[in-house]
Design a protein around this nucleic acid. Structure first.
Length: 587
RNA sequence: UGCCUCGUGGUGUAAUGGUAGCACCGCAGAUUCUGAUUCUGCUUGUUGGGGUUCGAGUCCCUGCGAGGCAACCA
């Protein structure tokens, strides 16, 4: 059972009470309302889990609504990828929808209604057109500590306002020349009540509606209308909207007066907004603006760069939808602004992949090992000779695909007496507690045999280029005939049949836990120069056929995924999702 | 110095007036043909001060600290 099934956080209790009090008309309706101006990231994933999760928990519905009220930053590319990523995370929107597909809405499809509501407000004397420049308005509005003063247009007649508003709609004015404001309270301690802008002029084509409109509603006006008219009961958003809530309620009140609230099961549905803390993770940035900057300035390879905290980046990195959901459940929902440890995310993905990922052997930093006493006379079951050294016979090692899951079966791997091992698994002068390969020391070659190193060959710089040793012919399969214990087991790849593969080793994108500690303009200086290291590895033959997005555990190394874009059967490319935990501490 | 919100181990989160618990991280040990996994154990916490109460992390007052709000962004 996931944490999300048991955590009774404040939003859940809030909804429980409304259900008990009969305020939902029989159906809890939530919504996830992203603006299609970027790719969604792990922070959005938390909101997705909350919005869809609460609807699911109460047997209700969750709408996917693209909040496309500002055409200047939005695009179809973003819209389509948002839908793709939410589906990949495992969520399905439901509800009536606004015409294209069930459960799916564009805020822009409601522009006609919003416009009509705005005219109603004008007629009721609750909104007026204002032609103050932004600079002038800033001065009129005042500061939080002091009341503002009214716009000179504040008492224009409804008739005249209606005329101007229609002229705005008809394109008679330039951007910024006029706007529509609600008439509320210029002295309110809440800035958002000081005659907030409802509509502004933008002579910009909308990605969804084209040139139909040149005036666009503001978030504070549009959002409560969208919620109310979709029959949303519980509108959950992030903390910074807390001060907007009175305005949200003000708009809902107006809709109520106009008789526009949805009635369901005999109950008038008044949408309510509540706020929870957004997700932060240390050593990364989560703001769309900064992520966009990383992309446009080329610090990463794109929105789906595996170092990015975007959903598509994490997919390419090898994260699973389940691990992301589990992480979101485990960080919980509260109003406390907090910073989660990426170690928890890593734990979640290891937890899942440990159960599900097939084991393979891959040598990321290869050095050749020659077994000097290996030969045909030692291997009566030899099936063919080694490519590299025709004199050498080949045996077959059988290993389980997943020791934790017998149903995963086994695989066979050729072993020809010349193998690659990882450089880190050899020490010419071993420190104490080094259980791997070292002269005079026995080590087990995973699944194959016990090997005793006799020495190594070095080049003129002192670098080890080849290791020699002998195997114990009575240990085939890995255990000594006399029962003696071997502490260390290392992985290997057969030289003759191993496949060359590009492997990308990813690390944290930033070296600093808080990359924004010196302000958002300074975060680039904390980019981790070693966040990507590309190596040429040898992998066991079975890995050659890996399909893109296939996930594996490279034994003793980590979890890896065949790259979504660049990996092809026959020419595999792997991304490191996360390392295995490693309790070895060099002395 | 206006309004709003939030303070529980290193991190995240429970305890809804009644034994401060869980998870991650970290540290030990056991097991192990992955120094993984698994298992066991351990360290570390209620922002300060008052008050109400038989009893306060929880309610009240007051300090302190953190964050949000002054886009024709969302």
């Amino acid at each position: 059972m996931s944490e999300s099934d048991t955590s009774r956080h404040f939003l859940r209790q809030w909804i429980e009470k409304d259900v008990a009090d009969g305020r939902t008309g029989g159906t809890v309706v939530t919504r996830f309302p992203p603006e299609p101006n970027g790719y969604i990231h792990i922070g959005h994933a938390k909101a997705v889990c909350v919005d869809f999760g609460m609807a699911e928990l109460f047997g209700g519905e969750c709408h996917l609504r693209l909040d496309d009220t500002n055409p200047t930053k939005e695009s179809d590319e973003y819209a389509e990828n948002i839908k793709k990523d939410i589906r990949w995370l495992g969520f399905r929107w439901s509800g009536a929808g606004d015409g294209t597909e069930p459960g799916f809405y564009n805020a822009s499809n409601m522009f006609d209604t919003m416009y009509a509501i705005a005219e109603n407000l004008i007629k009721a004397g609750q909104a007026y057109c204002c032609n103050l420049t932004q600079e002038e308005w800033k001065e009129y509005r005042g500061v939080p500590e002091k009341p503002g003063r009214p716009s000179p247009s504040r008492d224009t007649t409804p008739e005249r306002n209606l005329q101007i508003f229609r002229e705005m709609r008809d394109g008679k004015y330039a951007d910024g020349e006029w706007c529509l404001r609600a008439k509320i309270d210029m002295a309110s301690p809440n800035i958002h009540f000081r005659d907030p802008v409802l509509y502004r002029i933008r002579h910009v084509a909308h990605y969804h509606l084209g040139d139909k409109w040149c005036i666009y509603p503001m978030y504070d006006f549009a959002h409560p209308i969208e919620d109310a008219l979709e029959g949303v009961t519980h509108s959950m958003c992030t903390l910074e909207f807390e001060v907007h809530r009175p305005l949200y309620d003000w708009v809902v009140d107006r809709l109520d007066e106009m008789g526009l609230l949805v009635v369901r099961g005999g109950v008038k549905i008044r949408p309510q907004q509540r706020e929870f803390a957004r997700l932060n993770i240390t050593s990364t940035v989560m703001s769309k603006r900064l992520l966009l900057q990383l992309v446009t300035e080329g610090h990463v390879a794109g929105w789906d760069d595996p170092r990015m905290p975007t959903v598509c980046g994490m997919r390419r990195r090898g994260y699973t939808p389940g691990a992301i959901r589990e992480f979101c459940a485990r960080v919980g929902v509260s109003k406390v602004e907090s910073e989660s440890d990426p170690a928890l995310l890593e734990w979640c993905v290891r937890e899942e992949l440990n159960q599900t990922a097939p084991r393979r052997m891959a040598v990321l930093d290869p050095v050749r090992v020659v077994i000097d006493n290996w030969g045909a006379e030692d291997s009566p079951n030899a099936v063919r000779t080694s490519n590299l050294n025709p004199a050498r016979a080949v045996k077959t090692v059988e290993l389980p695909n997943n020791p934790l899951d017998e149903s995963a079966g086994t695989r066979q791997i050729p072993f020809g007496g010349e193998i690659w091992i990882d450089r880190a698994d050899f020490m010419e002068v071993p420190e104490k507690k080094f259980f791997r390969m070292a002269p005079g020391q026995e080590v087990r070659l995973r699944g194959a045999c016990i090997f005793k190193c006799t020495g190594c060959v070095k080049d003129e710089t002192g670098r080890v280029v080849e290791i020699h040793g002998t195997w114990d012919p009575d240990s085939w399969g890995g255990n000594a005939a006399d029962g003696r214990k071997v502490k260390g087991t290392i992985h290997w790849v057969d030289c003759a049949t191993g496949v060359k593969a590009e492997v990308r080793l990813y690390d944290r994108l930033f070296t600093e836990k808080n990359p924004l500690k010196d302000g958002p303009s300074e975060f680039l200086k904390y980019l981790n120069p070693d966040s990507l290291q590309t190596v040429s590895a040898y992998v066991e033959p079975a890995l050659a056929a890996a399909e893109p997005l296939a996930r594996f555990q490279f034994e003793r190394t980590g979890y890896f995924v065949a790259d979504e874009r660049d990996s092809r059967p026959g020419a595999p490319v792997f991304n490191r999702t996360v390392t295995l935990k490693d309790s070895y501490r060099p002395s």
